[in-house]
Nucleic acid binder design. Structure first.
Lengths: 231, 231
DNA sequence: TGGTCCAAATTGTGATTACAATCCGCGACA
DNA sequence: TGTCGCGGATTGTAATCACAATTTGGACCA
């Protein structure tokens, strides 16, 4: 695995390689770039990304700690599969944490931030019409996290919520892949209205409704036939 | 750093070294074995524990991912310090997640489990009387997690809650170290009663009250003078 | 035909080494 | 005397190597 003596030093010597690897894998997980159950090997990723085992190991260890990846008893890592119980817990945790994060961010929403958030919503609607699952997931994520991270607070809540999204990302991708985007409804309008009105209670309700809506889309029957397998 | 050719292979070849390191550090964090702000170095820990950098690095990466340790911009790792905002967020997250976890565990509480939990409470009261901060923290942790982990569920909630405990553990140790245990009140009685009665609402209320009580113990003035420093 | 067992390949773990960035303290200069 | 700058020491990062465990594939036997 010889290295041309050129490339390495390019842009920023600051950010460690394993952070870049981590960011790439995280984005792939949240937008559903990994199939549930798929095995992820150190050497496979290392070769694909052109680095040694060391930074890949660090990135996978981090994702595994965040429950985004599953380290089996054999020490091999794979993308977690979904079970009805796990899905229920994930959505319950979202219902508990995300309205709170939104409420805490509300005082810090500037008109610029609101415009940014609204932009994601527009792109999201376009993605639904286009039937573009990938774009839908990207913009849905952007919408929620632009909101939650608006406040200077949330050094605690935000990482917890991000963990949850990484966990259901791969599964939702499979679901949307089967259902298509036509069944999706944009539930973000009430949230935007509440943001404009600075109405905390309405904002909480809107976020909660959005989560509940996504949850009810997934019949337990659907759970059976998609990513749900034996852990 | 020579190694006697003997020791290595002994008991279980199963569990990787970095998991053992992780467990030890986690326990130390939850029971307050680390001072907030203290620097944690790879080589320091490696030498202290008699292993190479590799497993220590893996363990620290995991703890850092779980926000139990803080990786500064310089890539050096340290025990996080507390700020009023962070403490507030931590307790809010606890208030949201822990009553839910308790409620979900309630149907799975067997008489044996209840006896175990009651045992922790007894040990906890003894620790308060004795003024034994270490024992108090150990048994308080054991009490809550024996309860939350009773259900077969909580593969999602439990890790989130554990993350929160690791984050305030070092800080609480400092606080109790200053206040002593005499100010502590055992708030677990109502929880035990609710468990016996299988009263979900009462259980939620009891857990919530326990958390709120611990929170109110910490005046914001106290926050200033303990572990709170610049991040 | 079906099950078992062995060997090769795959994979994760841990130690070692080389290296770059940061930190710390001493000394020179204004 | 105070401040800036330089050089050694400390520390984290990434690559490489050796090794043990698991998995996998097929051959062999019942």
């Amino acid at each position: 695995m010889d290295e041309a003596p050129s490339g390495r030093k390019a842009g920023s010597a600051r950010e460690p390689v394993h952070d870049r690897i981590y960011d790439r894998l995280k984005a792939r997980l949240i937008t559903g770039g990994f199939m549930p159950g798929r095995a992820v090997t150190l050497r496979g990723l290392a070769e694909e990304l052109g680095v040694s085992l060391t930074p890949v190991r660090a990135a996978l260890a981090r994702l595994s700690a965040e429950r985004a990846l599953d380290t089996r008893a054999s020490r091999r890592v794979s993308v977690p599969t979904m079970t009805p119980a796990r899905f229920s817990e994930l959505m319950t945790a979202r219902q508990l944490l995300e309205p709170e994060a939104a409420a805490r961010a509300l005082p810090f929403i500037t008109p610029e931030k609101l415009a940014e958030i609204r932009g994601y919503d527009i792109a999201l609607e376009a993605a639904i019409e286009r039937g573009d699952v990938e774009s839908y997931m990207v913009n849905n994520h952007a919408f929620h996290f632009a909101l939650y991270s608006a406040g200077s607070s949330s050094s605690v809540l935000l990482p917890l919520i991000e963990m949850l999204w990484m966990q259901f990302g791969p599964f939702m991708r499979v679901v949307y892949g089967r259902l298509g985007t036509t069944n999706l409804v944009d539930q973000h309008r009430e949230a935007l209205v509440a943001l404009e009105a600075r109405d905390e209670a309405a904002l909480r309700a809107a976020i909660s409704a959005d989560i509940g809506d996504g949850m009810s889309l997934i019949g337990t029957g659907l759970l059976e036939e998609t990513g749900a397998k034996r852990p």
